[in-house]
């Protein structure tokens, strides 16, 4: 399960399960936002990634996030 911002790079090297992150230098928390918002985003996306571990897929899949 890959958490990455550069999805085109991930697909280009053949990754199967992907959850998008928000940037390269800070994948899971934008420093220009308050700490509690950063945590909320991180908690949400890690949760999506954990659920994605249980997904039965047959081809490369990008899992959607809400925050």
């Amino acid at each position: 399960m890959l958490m990455a911002n550069l999805i085109p790079v991930a697909t280009s090297v053949g990754v199967n399960k992907m959850v998008p992150t928000i940037s390269i230098p800070y994948p899971l928390g934008d420093p220009s936002t308050p700490l509690d918002e950063q945590y909320k985003l991180r908690y949400h996306r890690v949760g999506v990634a954990l659920d994605a571990l249980t997904a039965d897929i047959s081809e490369p899949t990008l899992f959607k996030t809400k925050i």
Partner: peptide, 29 residues
């Protein structure tokens, strides 16, 4: 290869230990 400022200020933005601990507490993992 990238501006280290944000990750040095809070390394959890790359290794989300705080969120993982919360999921442990909740029993998700």
């Amino acid at each position: 290869g990238f501006d280290p400022m944000a990750a040095n200020a809070d390394p959890d933005v790359i290794v989300p230990l705080d969120a993982m601990r919360q999921y442990e507490k909740e029993g998700k993992i």
